[in-house]
Design a protein around this nucleic acid. Sequence first.
DNA 1: CATCCGTGGTA
DNA 2: TTACCAAGGAT
Length: 352
Amino acid sequence: MPSDNPPAAELLAWYDRHRRDLPWRAAPGQPRDPYRVWLSEVMLQQTTVAAVGPRFARFLARFPSVQALAAADWAEVAEEWAGLGYYARARNLHACARAVAAAGRFPCNREGLAALPGIGPYTAAAVAAIAFDAPLVPLDGNVERVTARIFRVEDPLPGAKPRLAELAQGFMADGAASARPGDFVQALFDLGATICTPRSPACGICPWQGPCAARAAGVAADLPRKAPKRARPLRHGAHFLLRDAAGRVLLRRRPPRGLLGGMLEVPGTPWRETPWAEAEALPHAPAEAPWRRLPGLARHGFTHFELEMVLFAATLPPGATGPEEGEWLAEDGARMAVPSVMRRLLDLAGAA
DNA sequence: CATCCGTGGTA
DNA sequence: TTACCAAGGAT
């Protein structure tokens, strides 16, 4: 129903005046580098623009091309991704880089892109549209929200997702949109991020306020509706910070899949629902040592549970043989190389 | 299709 | 302090 669509030309005119200047965006009219577009899209999955900003530049400086990323060891990629979360993204990013480097170039259409690891329906459409000007509308959280409000879709997510995807793709039927697909989809992102925001949308300055059905009904801030989320249970862990005579700390590499897969950790117990008594935690220590319980707790929130950790610390006696497994890192280097949950333990040790 | 998978900012 | 949420993907 192109006739029911809001005017793409007005959104693009707004975008041309108010587009955000973001590190991964090419200047207007300049060609887009598929490597940068892909890297930024993966970094931005469930991650804020503010968090990605400095990390994108740093990553690009370390891995300037998809060939450089493909040639890197996993440990380097893991270190560079540390703190960004959702570490399966980094594993898939690395695998994807190797596939693209082997093929010689990025696929230029949605189907080819979607066949690569870590590239799902959203990212395939986004890279195809932004890097190759394919007439596709990727359905991210912004586009879901804008579309649900424009058409006043009251059905809750995630059930409404197929319908929203169809409605959003319909925007591209407007000739003004399909003339500039990459700009149009980024205009939708910017509209959702700066005006059509989740909590208090700035409808008064929205270029699409006229055709917006939710605005007309006064329900914009209530859309899209979402299914309620489950409460997060609390889990407990005990961890062991072992220092050597040089003040370095012992870290271990976690298994390659699952939570924090492939990342470095401070050795510790499994995370379970009941707290650990000292006597039952100590067998999980990485070495025999004069372990001393540090005061305080380290807390961290994961997507589906909360975690409270106690920390034991010890220094390996000079000349003593350390554990055979693990890597010794300087403490400040370790802070940079571990996931945030582990950084909290290092901070707790530093404060004690 | 529901669950698993991180983190930091904000109301 | 709690709860929500951000350019989602894999299983």
